[in-house]
Each structure stands twice: as C-alpha cells, then as structure tokens.
C-alpha cells in the first residue's frame, strides 16, 4: 500500500468537510434573522447621535427610535393559539424567523410536539412520531391541517399575546406542554411515556407543581430544537 495516498485521502476529506461547513455557513447568513438584528442594533446608535442638536425634536423622534427596535422582535417571534375546527384538540404554533414549533394536545392523552420551517408564508412541521402540520400564514392568522396519529384536523388560529402562548417544562422523567389561550384557560399534557393531563401552570411565574416539586416552564418562541 502507498505511503502517501492515505494522507492525500485524509487531506481531501478535511478540505471537503471545511468546504461543506462554509457552504452551511453561507446558508445561515442568507436566511435573514442575523441581518435584521444588525439593522436593529445600528439604528438606535445612529439616530440619537444625529438628534441632540435639536432639543425640541428629541421628544418626537424617540418613539420612532423605539418602534423599529420593538417591531422586528415581535415579527420574529409570534405565537398563534386556538382550537381545531371540530374542537378535537388545542393547538399552538410559534414562529420565529424561518423556524417554527407547534404543539397539539387534547389535554388528556393525545399530544404532539412538531418542529419545522417557515418559508415565505408556508409552514411545514413534523414530529418525531411522523405527525405533521402544514399551514399558511395569511391575514395575521395561521390556517392549515395538522395530522396527529394519522387523523387530519383543520384549524384556523390567531396570534396570542403573553401570558397566553406555548410553554414547555421538563422533569427528569417527563416533558410537559401547556397551551395558554388568550381567555386565560389552559390545556396541557404531561408525558412520561404515558400522556396524562398536565398539572396547572402559573403563567405569571412560569411554574407548576409536579409530584410535590416545582417545575419551571419556558415560553416556546419557535426556534427551539427538541
């Protein structure tokens, strides 16, 4: 066997890996969230710098400085909540940038966590068990079909403001999902292998009590991976 050819193979593999990592990194920068963040951070620094000479105008320009910093973050993370058309299940879809997380549950024994992408106005999500959600963002609402355990359910759901939204908590043995609806009602499932109704969540503190111990729930924004 040749003495040098394995080294050439090694070098080619290393170069190929680095090249592919670079391709992956160009994909990241072209998707947008990073560039919009850059715009947000640069806007407040330039605008106040140009304002101080005219003291009268600072009061008027301040709101316009604040607005652009708030609007992109709200656009970046939106949580839609609601029920399926036949009220079979409750559903929450969190969208952030090009990514999305959804949770469907009936509050008793059926639940599914789905992750996926938002491309333009189209949502495409899947769960590990093969459940899927196909939806479209239109007119400030999400309309589509979620297929849980092979059963397709139609839905149209609207944006929800905190404390309404989607929450997820983990214990050593289980994962708990809660959907808090705008009317304050909540639906959740505690899944430790056998799904069961979730204990009540205090949305203000983000905690629940499971088997006597406190569990902290985090608000799902849409770019998580499970």
């Amino acid at each position: 066997m040749g003495q040098r050819s394995p080294l050439v193979t090694l070098a080619a593999a290393a170069v190929g890996l680095v090249a592919l990592l670079v391709v992956n990194s160009t994909q990241t920068t072209s998707t947008g969230p990073a560039t919009s963040e850059a715009v947000v951070t640069s806007a407040p620094t330039t605008v106040p710098g140009s304002n101080p000479p005219t003291a009268k105008e600072t009061g008027a320009t301040k709101p316009t400085v604040v607005k652009p910093t708030v609007a992109p973050t709200q656009q970046a993370a939106v949580v839609y909540t609601g029920r399926t058309a036949g009220r079979e299940a409750t559903l929450a879809v969190a969208v952030k940038g090009g990514r999305s997380v959804a949770y469907v549950c009936d509050g008793r024994r059926v639940e599914a966590w789905l992750t996926g992408t938002r491309t333009g106005d189209t949502l495409a999500l899947r769960s590990r068990a093969g459940d899927r959600l196909d939806g479209a963002v239109a007119g400030g609402k999400v309309t589509g079909t979620v297929t849980v355990h092979g059963r397709p359910l139609r839905f149209t759901i609207a944006p929800a403001d905190p404390p309404a939204g989607l929450y997820r908590g983990r214990t050593s043995s289980s994962t708990i999902g809660w959907i808090v609806l705008p009317d304050g009602s909540q639906v959740g499932v505690d899944n430790d292998g056998t799904p069961a109704p979730a204990p009540p969540l205090d949305p203000q503190t983000g905690t629940a009590t499971v088997d006597g111990s406190a569990v902290t729930a985090t608000s799902v924004t849409g770019d998580e991976t499970f």
């Binding site: 593999a13 190929g16 890996l17 592919l20 992956n24």
Partner: peptide
Amino acid sequence: GRAAVAATLPVVAHCLYAL
C-alpha cells in the same frame, strides 16, 4: 473507502453546523 467517507462529509457538516 474514499467514496464512503465522501458520502459522510455532507452529513457530518450538517450535523456539526446545524445540530
């Protein structure tokens, strides 16, 4: 062997970078 390693490179690049 070279083909096998070449086939794994796009996979590992995605694993490392995205996951």
